[in-house]
């Protein structure tokens, strides 16, 4: 038992070091990785990946391809946006929060608009208007 605190300290240090390494990067879970203000992206859908853990859209705007994360599959479907709602080539407007790392073309949408229809995938986070 005498030597235990040293080992426990090592575990905590190891875990903390790992956490510190991982922190600057962006995240899919939660909103900590995104900017606070809303961001709006309009472009053409180049790929739809509908499924766990999060459906994503690839959206081309001004010659750049953005990755747009949606909510969980169930929440996204509950918002009315299903696998068949949009197709590659459709124009989409995504409103949400972009990555704090602006070199990264990556955002998490709270609302998407396709063919004049609005889908609030995070209804409690959409901008008030």
């Amino acid at each position: 038992m005498r030597s235990l605190p040293i080992f426990i300290r090592r575990i905590v240090l190891g875990a903390a070091a790992l956490g510190a390494l991982a922190l600057p990067a962006s995240a899919h879970h939660g909103w900590a990785w995104t900017q606070d203000g809303f961001f709006e992206l309009t472009g053409t859908i180049t790929a739809i990946d509908y499924g766990n853990p999060h459906p994503t859209l690839d959206v081309e705007a001004n010659g750049e391809v953005w990755r747009v994360d949606l909510a969980t599959p169930r929440a996204t479907a509950n918002a009315g946006f299903t696998e068949d709602t949009a197709a590659v080539g459709d124009e989409v407007t995504a409103i949400g929060n972009r990555s704090r790392d602006e070199t990264e073309k990556h955002m998490k949408a709270v609302r998407i608009i396709v063919k004049g229809q609005t889908y609030d995938v995070y209804p409690d986070r959409v901008p008030s208007n």
Partner: peptide
């Protein structure tokens, strides 16, 4: 102990990267 704890933390961070 250190390695398996690190495995657990790294695993959880996959969802947040």
């Amino acid at each position: 102990i250190v390695l398996w704890t690190a495995v657990l933390f790294a695993g959880r961070f996959i969802g947040f990267m």
